[in-house]
Design a protein around this nucleic acid. Structure first.
Length: 447
RNA sequence: GUGAUUGUAGCUCAGUUGGUUAGAGCGCCGGAUUGUGGUUCCGGAGGCCGCGGGUUCAAAUCCCGUCUUUCACCCCA
């Protein structure tokens, strides 16, 4: 008999953790719905042909692959097997994989159901995804994403609406954040005017690390990738601009860059006339890794906490194109529930009242009273009250200890006295105060 | 994927140059106390010392492998 275990990077959750997580999910879901997003569901497994090539080489390596059923080795690529060529062998023994995010499956869904849905289409999904990453703080192999996307509209109002949505989610969760905004086209424009656009993705990846490794770090990293030092220096200078006007001037020779600037301006036309509680700031150094973003990009950072981004998103102009449906633009945001959980835990933002939904536990003194107590519980439940009962008339001390440790706000005590009088003993578990109440009063009190 | 790091009771951790039957605190169970929960006292249960191999008369301890944990990088939520 060996000790049981779970795979690396996965976790079990205790009841308290589940209720905290549900609090986050419920908050986010209700705001998604409020903004008009509709829930959809897709399988946890997708065909590998759907997933591969969408997240770059790095992403492909992090895909969990599902072994084919049956005698897969007999059907395997025998040459690849002999030569121990893993990547070629994989394609012959695995045709499915676990989803890596919710956006690519969504693009696939849109293409497959294009005749059944109405554009612009707004959908949300709160589901687990899997990545074969090395686990680290705030990084797991199985984690939840909370996504909202809209496809089929080019309007910058969508970006503005998502910003409001982000603002509302973090206000509701009481996490102070800074919402960083940039546009991939502006970033490309900077690369272009500095002659670095031929290696744009290398450029973007390094820039994204600017706050971590500093200008020197970026410089040496890019020089190592054979980009011209003079161009890098100029780019670093441009990236330090924090206002749009000088940026516009600097990018005037880049058509793409100017397009990006005008998109950001249009975005500000929407966002500047509405209020938002959290800081929204333009940050030219924001790049984001996922290669499919093409327009505005967002990233949300919690203030006063050492933690990676807790939400991110942006516009992707042609994600459905790879599945054969051209010209459909989408924009979306993804909340990282696990990191939000960690941040809230660190800041002490979970409140007991929000999490405890069972109102009371009923404790019975003896077997006779236990049956009577059960009837009272059924009556309360029929009235819609969440209430629990200790399943046996055990020693009273044991029962009240159970109630205490289970953090029930109230205990309803029922013995022969209560049964005779019809008045139940109500005990406030935090103050210890007791009173006699009729079933009717209790029901009234908790509904 | 690269480089480190961790693993002993449910939890946090001791465990001497390798040497009898592996310990503590907390928690858990029972009792003191048959109608009252954070206290006290008494008693008890609970260990393939992560797993597999090797060295040795002898391994929790040394060596190799493997899994897991945490951390940095890569990348990312």
């Amino acid at each position: 008999m060996s000790k049981p275990s779970i795979p690396k990077g996965t976790r079990d959750f205790l009841p308290e953790q589940v209720s905290k997580r549900n609090y986050i999910f419920d908050t986010i879901r209700s705001i998604f719905i409020k903004y008009g997003y509709k829930g959809i569901a897709t399988p946890v497994m997708e065909n590998l042909s759907t997933l591969t090539g969408k997240y770059g080489d790095e992403g492909d390596q992090l895909l969990f692959k599902v072994l084919n059923n049956g005698d897969y080795l007999a059907k395997a690529d025998q040459n690849a097997l002999q030569e121990k060529d893993s990547s070629r062998l994989t394609s012959s023994i695995s045709k499915r994989g676990l989803r890596y995010d919710l956006t690519v499956p969504f693009a696939r869904y849109v293409v497959m159901h294009q005749n059944d849905i109405q554009f612009p289409f707004k959908r949300y999904a709160i589901e687990p995804v899997w990545r074969a990453d090395r686990p680290q703080k705030g990084r797991y192999q199985e984690f939840y994403q909370c996504d909202a996307d809209v496809v089929g509209s080019n309007s910058l109002m969508c970006e503005a609406e998502l910003t409001c949505l982000i603002d509302e989610v973090y206000s509701a969760l009481k996490i102070p954040v800074i919402i960083k905004v940039n546009n991939r086209k502006v970033l490309f424009g900077i690369a272009e005017v500095c002659g670095l656009h031929h290696q744009f993705s290398d450029f973007a990846v390094s820039i994204d690390k600017l706050d971590k490794i500093g200008q020197k770090g970026v410089l040496s990293e890019l020089i190592q990738k054979n980009l011209p030092e003079e161009g890098i220096q100029r780019a670093l200078h441009l990236l330090s601009l924090t206002a749009l006007a000088p940026m516009e001037e600097a990018l005037s020779s880049s058509e793409t860059g100017m397009k990006g600037i005008s998109e950001l301006k249009e975005y500000h036309n929407y966002i500047d006339v509405v209020g938002h509680k959290n800081e929204v700031s333009f940050d030219a150094t924001l790049a984001r890794g996922l290669s499919y973003y093409t327009g505005c990009i967002f990233e949300v950072k919690a203030k006063n906490v050492q933690m990676g981004s807790i939400a991110g998103g942006g516009r992707y102009d042609d994600l459905t194109g790879v599945f054969g449906m051209k010209g459909v633009s989408g924009v979306g945001i993804s909340f990282g529930a696990e990191r939000i959980y960690d941040v809230m835990e660190e800041l002490g933002l979970f409140e007991d009242e929000e999490l405890m939904n069972v109102k009371a536990i009923v404790l019975a003194m003896d077997p006779e009273s236990h049956k009577y107590a059960f009837a009272q519980v059924v009556a309360m439940r029929n009235a819609g009250i969440a209430v629990d009962i200790y399943p046996e008339p055990a020693k009273f001390k044991k029962q009240i200890k159970y109630a205490h440790q289970g953090k029930y706000p109230y205990a309803v005590i029922i013995g022969t006295d209560e049964q005779a009088s019809g008045l139940l003993t109500l005990k406030n578990m935090s103050t210890g105060d007791q009173s006699k109440e009729s079933l009717k009063t209790l029901i009234k009190m908790w509904t």
